[in-house]
Simulated assay, not measured.
Amino acid sequence: MSDATSESDSTPETDAIAPAALARAIDAGEPVALLDVRDRDEVASWAIEGPSIEREHVPYARFLQAEVTGGVDDLAADLELDEPITVVCGRGEASDHVADLLAEAGVAARNLVEGMTGWARVYHADEIDVEGPATVVQYRRPSSGCLAYLVHAGGEAAVIDPLRTFVDRYAADAADRRVDLRYAIDTHLHADHVSGVRRLAAETGAEPILPEPAAARGVDGVTTVADGEALAFGDTVIEAIAAPGHTSGAFAFRAGDALLTGDSLFLDGVPRPDLEAGADGAHDLAGTLHDTLTERFDALDDDLLVAPGHHGPSEQPEAGGAYTARLGDLRDRLPVFSLDRERFVERVLDRMGPRPANHERIVAINRGREQTDDETAFELELGPNNCAAASTE
């Protein structure tokens, strides 16, 4: 079962495309030509990505200048993109103007409605094929690669790693599936998005859950879960498994044959270890991450289906649309599993890129030390997935 997005594909203009429709085309592997008219630094820090995308960058200012000088036809002729061209900006206003200019120049162009802001509101849901009584639904935000999960069985459910922006979506989906939300769980103290655990608990009566060592970082008002503890709901249980490394308090959760790894293991690599203790503490946490992967996870079966907390832009989903892989396959294909501790630490520390935007403020909000309104929370987390070290394949 697949629910492609929470928004409508329809748009009032014939020369426009909704973010949901664009996401579906990218997921289907259709060729997509994007003309990004934002400033260069904006494009460099966050762009729509995918293996079937062809992108060109021409700043909006050049189109404004060409409009004044009568050079739009020449600017359009210089574009090396196949038509139709989808024009992208921050909020869909400048790109709408550019799409009109290109159309007047005879180019098949369409505006991405609401631009990158609209792109950040796209949210997919796909069921994962798992064994056991539970149904597992994977939610995906294409703009950042953030993944969350709804696990339900016997009339009750848990949501793992919910985003505050999509709390209404989880509640609505639970109602559609005729299940009551029993738990709202974070696998760790997130630094890239504002957690929906507290909001979901407040609006649905779900019990807010955080790993015991994560809560020890100064988080109040939550129930803690310890390593090895089982959370029962409906006619199933999920088991908490300590998986430190990305942060000191990171956990994974096992639901049947699914291993919800949070940010402890991705399908194309491993997480960065510097968001909690900075560069000074990254070395020790990277070593701890190696221990998690090679010792704590060593006792886990190869057949477990890894369902991570993020996916990378180069990854392709399984046939059903979800991003998963068997643990044994990851052990075979990711070289980090065969590296000794010292070489692993060196490799991870060498591959860390920019930190998530506003990560310190997001952590403060998720700890409950700062309050913010919904729109500010949404704006704070706009951007790519920067929780991973660079791909380790």
Rank of each mutant, 00 (worst) to 15 (best):
R182F: 02
G269S: 04
R198V: 15
G245I: 03
D126Y: 11
D301C: 04
T224E: 12
R140N: 09
L102I: 13
P244C: 03
S143L: 02
S338V: 09
V363I: 13
G245V: 05
H152G: 04
R296S: 15
L147S: 08
V159S: 05
A242M: 00
P12W: 08
V222L: 00
A109Q: 08
D268Y: 05
L189A: 08
V306S: 11
F297M: 13
G245T: 02
V270H: 00
Q65R: 15
S195M: 02
A201L: 10
V113L: 14
V107A: 11
I238C: 01
T11S: 12
R217D: 13
R254C: 04
S45Q: 12
D3Q: 12
N366T: 12
L147V: 11
R177H: 14
I26T: 07
A322S: 15
D39V: 10
V37D: 00
E127A: 14
P59M: 07
G218R: 03
A171G: 06
C146L: 11
G115S: 07
G249K: 00
A172D: 15
E114L: 11
F344G: 11
S264V: 04
R55Y: 00
L267I: 08
T69Q: 07
D291A: 12
V32L: 02
T294M: 07
D280N: 13
T236L: 04
H57K: 06
L285W: 04
E30P: 04
T376P: 01
